[in-house]
Every structure is written in C-alpha cells, then in structure tokens.
Design a protein around this nucleic acid. Structure first.
Lengths: 138, 138
DNA sequence: GTACCTGCAAATCTTTTGCACGACA
DNA sequence: TGTCGTGCAAAAGATTTGCAGGTAC
C-alpha cells in the first residue's frame, strides 16, 4: 500500500487524505466494491471526502494499474485490486457471482487468437447464465 | 414480421402504430442498434412516437423473445433480432465489434458446466480485448 | 509558490415510472 | 366498452465536469 503512495508521488501526483483513505478501504477488505460502497467506507473514516473525489481517485488508481473495474451485470461497476485477478460467472436469476480461476478462459483466449488474431481480456465483463442451484429449481 | 404482430395479439397485447414502426426498423436494417438509434429511426417514420414508448416496446419484444439486448462495452445497450445470434469481440482501442459464430463459446460452456454446473449465456456481454490491427500498431 | 487536488453544484447520459388520456379489439 | 398502450413530465441511478478555493511538495 505504501508502494502505491510512492507510485502517486513518482507520477507527479500528490498523496492526500482522501487517497490514503481510499487505499486503506481497498486493501482492508478485498473483493468487489461498487463506487457507492467505497464512498460509504471512506466516509466512515472521514465524512468530508466527496463522492466525486472518490470517482476521480478510482479513475486515477485504475490508470496506474493498481485497481480494475469489472461489470458483474446491470448496475454499477465494481472495483477490485489488480492483484485479485479472476473472472466471474453471474447467475441471472439469483445474482450470485461465482469467481472462476484465471485459467478458466485460456481455451477461449487461444481460439480467439488463432481464429481472429484477437487478444481477449475476459475479465472485464462477467459471463451471465444460470447457476446450478437455479437450474435445478426450474 | 407479421408473425411478431400475431405474437402481440395472442399474448393479449395490441398492435399499434409505434409497435409496427419499431418492428419495421428492426427488420429493415438488421444489426445492433442502440435504443437512441431506434428512436431516431422510428421518428423518421412518425415523429409522434415517444422515447419511453420505444423503451417499453423494446422490453416487451425482449420478453416475447423477438429481440435481445447485448452490451458491447460501456455506453448504451444495443438491441438485435434473436435470429441474429452471435457473440462479440470488441476492441478496447478502436471500438470495432467483431461478430463471432455461435459455436465460439462451446468449449467455455462445457467447462463452465462440468466444473461449476453453470450454464453460460455468453452473448449478453461482449468480450473485450485488443484486435489484430491494434495489436500490431502497439 | 505553483501545480495539483478537492468540495460543491450542476450537468450528463441512459433508462424507468406515475399518471391521465386515447385507441385497439 | 374495457383494457392496454401512449405521450408527457419527471424521477431515477451512475457518473462526469466546471469552477473556485485549498493543500502537498
């Protein structure tokens, strides 16, 4: 985490209260969090931090490669540390998000590359479908 | 197309001007169109049709299975006839959407099912990445 | 001191909703 | 004639932006 603060400094940026708090929230409880959840979390530490500041800092952290955002379905984007890299299967019926290992998309990546010369980045959007539990219900 | 109009009738619905025009636009020029593009297209035929009516009719057509919407990236959803079923690879750099055959995701679907009991519906979100042209540029 | 960051308010963009009127069957 | 669809206006939800003041370095 202090490595990230250095990253801000070396890129000509500044280390500020809101950036420190946002990073603390991201590192303290890993996983996917929406911008709104992060606003709540940061404001629990300092109610002065403004929503738009958090959006701006999330953008900045993404530009620096520290975090990524993914879309688990309709609704807001979710942010997570780049170190937690995995794909997602999201059930359209119950909303459950299933984390899948990084290698899950390897076959697909190979096919895309050989057939179309296309390098996929398969984690940005979740793959929707029906989970085992909901399939047996139906 | 008249089959769809019958579908409206048999489901207890009505055939109206705006529904007729929306269907004409969808059938006349196939491919992905955003709601906004469809609003423009329908209004070229009848300027009275309201934006919200088109959204409501798109929902209804999707419920009837006539159309589907997909997300090709950030930005608005795109709608297309269910008969044009194919996945998409969207280049993050140039925005080009590459249509891929329906079988493209078969391997992934098998893996998801055997490993997680999860039935994927892989066409709802595009797969992002870098297309061949942009990869050689970089 | 100065460039960068922030709070604030307001705008943006896409989509949804409540309501009263009008039209299809 | 009764129900369903529509236009309208307004709200909703997520995110972005212009600006003027404040702060890290």
């Amino acid at each position: 985490m202090s490595a990230v603060l250095d990253l801000f400094r070396t890129q000509g940026g500044r280390v500020t209260v809101s950036r420190r708090l946002l990073l603390r929230c991201l590192f303290d409880r890993p996983g996917h969090r929406t911008a709104d959840e992060l606003v709540t979390a940061v404001r629990a530490l300092d109610p002065e931090v403004h929503r738009s500041t958090i959006y701006r800092n999330l953008d900045e952290l993404e530009r620096l490669g520290v975090i990524e955002h993914v879309h688990l379905g309709h609704g807001p984007a979710t942010y997570h540390l780049s170190t937690e890299r995995h794909g997602h299967l999201v059930c359209e019926h119950c909303g459950t998000a299933l984390a899948v290992p990084d290698g899950f998309f390897d076959e697909l990546a190979g096919t895309a590359l050989t057939q179309f010369g296309f390098q996929i980045r398969p984690r940005h959007f979740a793959v929707l479908g029906t989970c085992a539990a909901c399939a047996t219900d139906a």
